[in-house]
Every structure is written in C-alpha cells, then in structure tokens.
Design a binder for these strands. Structure first.
Length: 285
DNA sequence: TGCCAGGCTTCAC
DNA sequence: GTGAAGCATGGC
C-alpha cells in the first residue's frame, strides 16, 4: 500500500550517518519480505513492519533517517540493521583473485545481514520454499492482513505478523486461502509445535549455529536451506550459508572445485548474501 | 504449454 | 545415506 500521498506528519525522527548501508539493496536482497518502497518521487524511502512496529526510513546518501523515537531506534532498529558490525572490515577479507566474489561485493556493498524476529523468520522462510520473492511477499502480506493485529501509527494502518497462537488456532482451509499451497500444513504444524512448547524459541536463541540448525530441522517443513536462512537472517549465525537454487547455480558455475568455506569461516553468510544478490541481478549488470 | 521460484517430505533401495 | 517422485501456486 502507498501512504505517501497522505503525507502523514511524523513526529519522531532520528538521522544517522552510516557507512555500508543501502536501503534499496537491503530491501531487495531477499532476506526480509515486509520492507516496501514508498513511491515518492526523487526520494529513497521504504517502510517496514517488524517486531510489531511500523517504521519509515529515508536515505539521502550516507544520511539515513529513521522515523521513530530515539528510544525505539536504540531498542529495536539499531540492532535490527546490525549497525555495530563493520562491513568494510569484512569485505576487505575477500580473496581479491576471486573475480565473481569481488564483483558480487562491489555490486552488493550496502547490504547488511538483518537480525529479524525469530518466529516471523521461520514462517517466512517456510513460505519461501520453491517460491518467488514477489509471491513470498504477497503470501506474507495476506497472512498478516488476515491473521495479524491491526495497528496504527500517525494515522498509518499496518498489520503485525500473526502469532503462533493465532496461526495454531486456524483450520487448514483458512491457510489454504492465503495462496500458501502445500506449505499450509507446514505452517500449521510449526505453529502448534511452538504454541505447545514442543519447540522453544527462547532456548533456540541460546544455541550455537550447529545446534540451532539441527533443532530447526526438527520442524515439519524446515530442511537444511530454510534452517540456514533462519540461522543467518534471525539468529545472526553468520557462518550459515543457505544454498538455494541460485546459490547452487553459482557454486556449480564459478566454484567447481568447491567454495572456500574455511577461508570465510565466521562470516561466510555475508559472502553468500552478496553472491545471491549479485546473481539475482546479473541480467541488469 | 512448460518451466521456474531463497525446498521439503516421503518412500524405495 | 542417497535419489527420485510429488507437491500448490502464479508469473513468464
């Protein structure tokens, strides 16, 4: 939806000068699905709903304006956008002889690995399987509008991500009507597992990468790839290296002798994200 | 029409 | 443990 026409008055805002922060690239990098461009001529402005909050962000070169209170920025968004990590330092560790990776980094600089809500990330990436990014966004939007909580800030309505309790209470037919296809049953079973504490999200947050991946894969509908996405895009285990169809094609084309995972131990996930984003946009390069 | 999309479960072996 | 079939849906 486009609320820019209404020009609502935003009371709170905080502007930061940030390096390695590209709003458009972050929004289009396929790690989050509720970040949308606000169609406003001559500005780079996006909205996002996360952690039950609605946020608008404006980018003017290195100046990033977050339309929220200073307190909310400190409590939520500073951490959400991983602002304590020096991406310059990580980018500099790449093998300069690796042409594909260097091109990917040059193309994708400004992407950051988000720290998203765990529950939302699990469901979002269950939906992502064998699905396209526009359709994933559409499915999640429907899910939120039908089963999330309607909220409003400065006259702007938005919907929170539905809770496990809410999703667990649904009939499978209600989920089927959200264009989720065969993923409906995965979502319903996962919601029930979380609601009944058969799967404890808080304990998962305390685990290391290896154990959290093993735990996530116990969920019905979560395999290696989805588990890695949750590890990377929510739990911030940046060793996780999700291999989907795109990354698999990259590995087969450019890394026939194997990707040097050991070299990038501790931050391989960031390299993966640059490569994924670059591959998505190769036709435009 | 057929192929593909940030794959997973099930089942045979 | 490995490999193949089947799976919903919509865009191209």
């Amino acid at each position: 939806m486009n609320y820019a026409m209404d020009k609502p008055i935003r009371k709170d805002m905080i502007t930061k000068k940030l390096q390695n922060f590209d709003l458009k690239k972050i929004a289009e990098s396929g790690q989050c699905f509720r970040m949308n461009k606000i169609e406003d001529l001559d500005t780079i402005k996006y909205s996002i709903v996360a952690f039950d909050k609605y946020l608008e962000i404006l980018q003017e070169n290195d100046n990033i304006t977050f339309f929220c209170s200073k307190e909310q920025f400190t409590e939520i968004w500073h951490n959400y956008f991983d602002l304590d990590t020096d991406y310059n330092e990580i980018n500099a560790l790449a093998d300069t002889k690796d042409n594909f990776l260097m091109n990917a980094i040059n193309f994708g600089t400004g992407i950051r690995i988000l720290k998203q809500d765990l529950w939302e990330t699990i469901i979002s990436f269950i939906i992502s399987q064998r699905n396209s990014i526009p359709r994933i966004k559409k499915c999640i939007e429907i899910l939120c509008e039908r089963f999330g909580e309607r909220k409003e800030i400065d006259g702007i309505p938005y919907y929170t991500f539905p809770t496990a309790k809410k999703l667990a209470s649904l009939q499978i037919e209600e989920l089927n009507q959200c264009s989720l296809g065969y993923r409906s049953k995965y979502i319903l079973e996962t919601a029930k597992a979380v609601l009944h504490k058969e799967f404890d999200l808080e304990i998962l947050k305390q685990m290391n990468y290896e154990n959290s991946k093993i735990e996530l894969m116990k969920l019905y509908g979560v395999g290696m790839k989805v588990a890695d996405c949750v590890c990377l895009f929510s739990l911030h285990h940046i060793d996780a290296f999700p291999i989907d169809t795109h990354v698999n094609q990259i590995l087969e084309t450019y890394y026939k002798d194997g990707f040097p995972f050991e070299r990038y131990s501790g931050y391989a996930g960031i390299m993966q994200q640059y490569m994924f984003y670059y591959k998505l946009n190769l036709a435009k390069v």
